[in-house]
């Protein structure tokens, strides 16, 4: 899923300081699963903003809605009848949400309520970790399901480097050295030779370096 963190409340209060009537739009996709922008968090943000604005003597009128997703035009269209009734809209989706909204409704102003961080998963309740860098050409089959692009601090294709010690990366004792894990797994499975085999160089043209990306699937395009 796409993982995000809540923005500091002071930052959100500053964004909306001149607005009297706002809509907070949650998303039932990834940000609901990572407990940052679903219906529940919409309620918490609305209440927090109302408390802050009442205290500041500048009350705000807040409407709460949560869409199925904010990364598909058909769900964005569900607010077409109400979106212009507000001075501004706070989107609690990942960075895609406010952008899809502002493309669909150019006359309205949209503000993000979360800092979108990475593609990852919940390693335990309340803790998420990065697993994918979205580089566009997956190579984890060479490394038994572990991604050195996303999980090695240097994105090395031929680690471990000299900064690996005791299974940890030199950047922090809390960061596992993925190359240590890859080598250990290969050794345990008796397939260490896999790592010395020649493989084609990684195709970086599909990564972010080539500018904003598009994915076109002809069989689906109408």
């Amino acid at each position: 899923m796409i993982v995000a963190n809540p923005k500091p409340i002071s930052e959100i209060l500053d964004m909306i300081k001149d607005l009297k009537k706002i809509l907070i739009l949650g998303c039932k996709g990834c940000v609901t699963v990572c407990n940052v922008g679903g219906a529940k968090e919409v309620g918490i943000l609305a209440s927090t903003l109302k408390i802050a604005r009442i205290k500041g003597g500048n009350p705000v009128d807040i409407t709460e809605r949560t869409l199925e997703r904010q990364c598909d035009p058909e769900y964005i269209a569900q607010v077409k009848d109400i979106v212009h009734d507000f001075d501004g809209v706070i989107s609690m989706a990942c960075g895609v949400g406010p952008q899809f909204l502002s493309e669909a409704y150019p006359k309205q102003r949209f503000f993000p309520a979360v800092d979108t961080t990475f593609f990852g998963g919940a390693v335990q309740h309340g803790i998420w970790a990065e697993r994918c860098a979205g580089c566009g050409t997956c190579i984890i089959h060479y490394f038994d399901g572990m991604c050195p692009i996303a999980r090695c601090s240097k994105s090395l294709m031929n680690g471990p480097c000299g900064g690996s010690a005791g299974g940890k990366c030199e950047i922090s004792k809390d960061v596992d050295c993925i190359w240590d894990m890859i080598v250990r797994k290969k050794m345990e499975q008796g397939r260490l030779d896999d790592l010395v085999r020649f493989k084609p160089s990684k195709d970086w043209r599909t990564a972010r370096d080539g500018g904003p990306r598009r994915s076109i699937r002809e069989e689906l395009v109408i």
Binding site: K40, G43, S47, T48, I51, I54
Partner: peptide, 11 residues
Amino acid sequence: VDIIHLLKAIE
């Protein structure tokens, strides 16, 4: 008891 219940009381 959730965060929202405590916040609503304050609100």
